[in-house]
Amino acid sequence: MLRIFTETPSDTHEVEYLYDLCFAPGRTALSSYRLRDGVEPVGPLCRIARDEYDVLAGAIRFWPIRVGPAGHRALLLGPVAVHPTHQGEGLGALLITEGVERARELGWERILLVGDAPYYNRFGFEHDIAEAVDFPPPTNPARILARELVPGAMEGVGGLVRRWED
């Protein structure tokens, strides 16, 4: 039985270890990590899952970002990771679905990510509505996906994604 909690500072080391386990060692060299540098994630949206032995089974984080010269507010989803012993159980889907709904409840209008469309399309993320959005290089433009939490929230949103504080 899995239990979902809001990530706390005491979970940070375990979450980072899980990300290291699930992703390539050079994950922090990705351009999306430059958008996270020195920026606090959106705490209420950062969730972890623990199994019946209290072992970390999964984690998801969301980060505030700005898009284009108008500075449109958005969330950057990721990373989301599931421990190999729990993959295939639907935990990643649960964390994403819950995170998207909580983001809507908190008043966010749009979420962006860089990822695989075949996986994220089932959660409502689309490439077409993100075509005017650019991430810092090197980012494959075909992997930029967005989800509107409010109808029309991506209309007129375009340009370079930047850190929240910039």
Rank of each mutant, 00 (worst) to 15 (best):
L2R: 07
L2N: 06
L2H: 11
R3D: 10
I4W: 01
I4V: 14
F5V: 02
E7C: 09
S10F: 00
T12C: 00
V15M: 09
E16F: 11
E16I: 07
Y17T: 05
Y17H: 05
D20R: 15
L21C: 05
L21A: 05
F23D: 09
F23W: 08
T28A: 13
L30A: 15
L30V: 08
S31L: 00
S31V: 00
S31N: 01
S32A: 14
Y33Q: 13
Y33T: 00
R34N: 12
L35D: 06
R36W: 03
D37L: 13
D37E: 15
V39Y: 06
E40V: 03
P41V: 03
G43D: 12
G43W: 02
P44Y: 11
L45G: 04
R47H: 12
R47P: 00
A49R: 03
A49D: 02
R50E: 10
D51H: 11
E52Q: 14
E52N: 06
E52R: 13
V55D: 13
A57R: 03
A59L: 04
I60R: 02
R61T: 15
I65L: 13
R66G: 03
V67N: 13
A70S: 14
H72R: 11
A74P: 09
L76V: 10
A81C: 13
A81L: 01
V82Y: 01
H83D: 15
H83Y: 10
H83E: 11
H86S: 10
Q87P: 01
E89N: 10
G90L: 08
G90Q: 08
L91F: 07
L91D: 12
G92A: 15
G92H: 03
L94Q: 12
I96Y: 11
I96N: 08
E101S: 14
L106E: 14
I111Q: 01
L112K: 08
V114Q: 01
P118Y: 11
Y120D: 01
N121F: 06
G124P: 03
G124Y: 02
F125V: 00
H127Q: 15
A130Q: 10
E131K: 15
V133D: 02
V133C: 03
D134R: 15
P136G: 06
P136D: 03
P138C: 03
T139N: 05
A142N: 07
I144R: 11
L145Q: 07
A146D: 02
E148H: 10
L149D: 10
V150L: 12
G152N: 08
A153I: 09
M154S: 15
E155C: 02
V157G: 04
V157W: 04
G158W: 05
G158F: 06
L160D: 07
L160T: 06
L160C: 04
L160Q: 13
V161G: 05
R162T: 15
R163T: 11
E165T: 14
E165K: 09
